[in-house]
Amino acid sequence: MTGTKDNTPVHAAGCVLWRRSHVAEGLELCLVHRPKYDDWSHPKGKLKRGEDPLAGALREVEEESGYAVEPGAELPTVHYMANGRPKQVRYWAAEATTGGFTPNDEIDRILWLPPTAARLRLTQPRDRELVDELLATMRRA
């Protein structure tokens, strides 16, 4: 079909990945750097056909960050346009349990930062809002 635009949403999932700080009281959030876009974001990725969104989020987080996680509360779904198509990303709070980062073609660096520094480093405002949602969820728990 020439000239038609595919408006089918791209479905993706990820996590706002956190761990208890080793040096100070509080939390550190994991941000991933994608060299293709030169941006800092939360680990996330496209779902495979028929994949459960939470299972996809956990798979993507482990692929991108190297960490296995314990999922927590679901956070707000983020909607935006990517390459001319609507994209929908479901997020969960997730605590890093075991693992370690190894650079790859998709993700060349990760950072563990306190929430305030993570908000400043994140490239997209929509990702910054997820930091606030994580902290609000943890305060309610």
Results as ranks from 00 to 15, higher is better:
residue 10 V to S: 06
residue 12 A to G: 15
residue 12 A to W: 06
residue 13 A to W: 02
residue 14 G to Y: 05
residue 16 V to R: 13
residue 19 R to Y: 09
residue 19 R to S: 08
residue 20 R to Q: 15
residue 21 S to I: 09
residue 22 H to Y: 12
residue 22 H to D: 10
residue 25 E to G: 13
residue 25 E to P: 11
residue 26 G to M: 12
residue 26 G to V: 02
residue 26 G to I: 10
residue 27 L to K: 11
residue 29 L to T: 09
residue 30 C to K: 10
residue 30 C to H: 07
residue 32 V to Y: 01
residue 33 H to C: 06
residue 33 H to K: 02
residue 33 H to D: 01
residue 35 P to L: 05
residue 37 Y to M: 10
residue 37 Y to W: 12
residue 39 D to H: 10
residue 40 W to L: 07
residue 42 H to M: 14
residue 42 H to Y: 04
residue 44 K to E: 13
residue 45 G to C: 05
residue 45 G to H: 11
residue 45 G to Q: 06
residue 45 G to V: 06
residue 46 K to M: 12
residue 46 K to E: 08
residue 46 K to H: 05
residue 47 L to C: 13
residue 48 K to S: 05
residue 49 R to C: 00
residue 50 G to A: 14
residue 50 G to T: 01
residue 51 E to M: 14
residue 51 E to K: 14
residue 52 D to H: 15
residue 54 L to I: 09
residue 54 L to D: 08
residue 55 A to W: 01
residue 55 A to T: 15
residue 55 A to E: 13
residue 57 A to E: 11
residue 58 L to P: 02
residue 59 R to M: 08
residue 59 R to N: 11
residue 60 E to T: 02
residue 60 E to I: 02
residue 60 E to A: 11
residue 61 V to E: 05
residue 61 V to Q: 02
residue 62 E to F: 05
residue 62 E to T: 06
residue 62 E to P: 01
residue 64 E to H: 11
residue 65 S to A: 15
residue 66 G to F: 10
residue 66 G to T: 04
residue 69 V to H: 01
residue 70 E to N: 04
residue 71 P to T: 11
residue 71 P to W: 03
residue 72 G to Y: 00
residue 72 G to K: 02
residue 72 G to R: 11
residue 73 A to T: 14
residue 73 A to I: 07
residue 74 E to P: 05
residue 75 L to Q: 03
residue 77 T to Q: 07
residue 78 V to I: 14
residue 79 H to W: 06
residue 80 Y to S: 13
residue 80 Y to P: 02
residue 81 M to T: 12
residue 84 G to A: 00
residue 84 G to C: 06
residue 86 P to W: 03
residue 87 K to H: 12
residue 87 K to S: 13
residue 87 K to N: 13
residue 87 K to P: 00
residue 89 V to R: 04
residue 92 W to R: 11
residue 92 W to Q: 13
residue 93 A to L: 09
residue 93 A to K: 01
residue 94 A to D: 00
residue 94 A to T: 04
residue 97 T to N: 03
residue 98 T to W: 12
residue 98 T to R: 08
residue 99 G to H: 03
residue 100 G to K: 12
residue 101 F to E: 09
residue 101 F to L: 02
residue 102 T to P: 02
residue 103 P to Y: 02
residue 104 N to C: 10
residue 105 D to H: 04
residue 105 D to I: 10
residue 106 E to Q: 09
residue 106 E to C: 05
residue 107 I to C: 03
residue 109 R to P: 00
residue 111 L to H: 09
residue 112 W to G: 03
residue 115 P to I: 01
residue 117 A to R: 05
residue 117 A to Q: 12
residue 118 A to K: 09
residue 118 A to E: 07
residue 119 R to G: 00
residue 120 L to Y: 03
residue 122 L to N: 04
residue 125 P to D: 12
residue 125 P to T: 05
residue 125 P to Q: 05
residue 126 R to S: 08
residue 126 R to M: 04
residue 126 R to V: 00
residue 127 D to E: 06
residue 127 D to V: 01
residue 127 D to I: 01
residue 128 R to Y: 06
